[in-house]
Design a protein around this nucleic acid. Structure first.
Length: 275
DNA sequence: ATAGCGCCCTGGTGGC
DNA sequence: TGCCACCAGGGCGCTA
């Protein structure tokens, strides 16, 4: 499932090839992946535009277009893949959109579960995703300090796991990196957010930065279907301490990793190392 | 304002 | 072997 490190890896692979490429045609094989505007409008308006900067905020890919201001916003959600492939590549079963370019390549959007999709809009315009307006700071944003995290957690009774998944508090964490950050910080995921001590918040803040940075350096985690725009898998999988390791020994103490449902999500932790 | 839960979707898994 | 209930989860919308 693409979280910040995976989406950033896709961004980097697209940033090498996409700027300057003009859209010549859009083949929409499943209209449901266009969240805004109407699919017919999307197909009519996108061709003729040229890709500019390839950006990212949280888990949103922001593909700038000229003439603009106009942005193609892509969210991969669970199983989305944005692939830069030779133009002759045949669409696969779950390829829902083919964006033809003025070269021998095309952009393919594949998404088995079809949770993800596209918006074509601009800041402060209709169709700009609500979640993007309220997105919290990036983990490496200088504004994301232990004090800022403490302020966001103050008085909160929801489990810290739920608050780490709340994109308004910090952008880009999903289930994998929330669990891994809490393990690294030694904090039980079901602790109320407001119950964390100052020292624990500092540890958590550092853990988030470290986990995201480490995963990014390895191109992310390919747990299910994640691959970058060039089809490459992420290598962080082998560095996971708790996520997806239910019953296996904790790397810290050897106790079996436990799994429980917290915040409506499968949550992995060590009952001994995390307090 | 906040917490919690259902919904979307489909391939894989496990039980019988 | 076949069938089917169930699970995975990001973000949003809804409820209390």
């Amino acid at each position: 499932m693409p979280e910040l490190p995976e989406v950033e890896t896709v961004r980097r692979s697209l940033a090498d090839v996409l700027p300057g490429r003009r859209v010549t045609a859009v083949d929409l094989r499943h209209p449901g992946v266009i969240h805004y505007p109407e699919p017919e409008t999307f197909v009519r308006e996108l061709p003729g535009h040229t890709f500019g900067a390839v950006g990212r905020r949280g888990k949103y890919l922001l593909l700038e277009l000229t003439p603009g201001p106009l942005t193609l916003i892509v969210h991969l959600r669970m199983t989305g893949q944005l692939l830069y492939v030779p133009a002759a590549t045949a669409p696969e079963k779950h390829t829902h959109a083919v964006i033809a370019l003025d070269t021998d390549y095309a952009l393919h959007y594949k998404d088995m579960r079809r949770f993800g999709g596209f918006c074509l809009s601009g800041p402060d315009r209709d169709g700009w995703p609500a979640g993007l307006r309220t997105l919290g700071p990036e983990p490496d944003d200088p504004a994301f300090t232990p004090a800022a995290l403490a302020k966001a957690l103050h008085g909160r009774t929801a489990p810290i796991k739920a608050l780490l998944l709340d994109q308004r508090i910090v952008a880009g964490l999903g289930n994998i990196y929330a669990d891994e950050s809490l393990f690294r910080a030694g904090i039980r995921p079901d602790r109320a957010g407001g119950s964390l001590t100052e020292a624990e918040i500092e540890r958590l803040h550092e853990a988030i930065g470290d986990v995201i940075e480490h995963a990014l350096s390895l191109g992310g985690t390919s747990f299910y279907s994640y691959i970058d725009a060039a089809g490459k898998r992420g290598e962080f999988l082998e560095y996971l301490n708790v996520y997806g390791r239910t019953g296996q020994p904790c790397p810290g103490c050897g106790e079996p990793v436990q799994r429980q449902v917290t915040a409506g999500r499968g949550t992995h932790y060590c009952g001994r190392c995390q307090q």
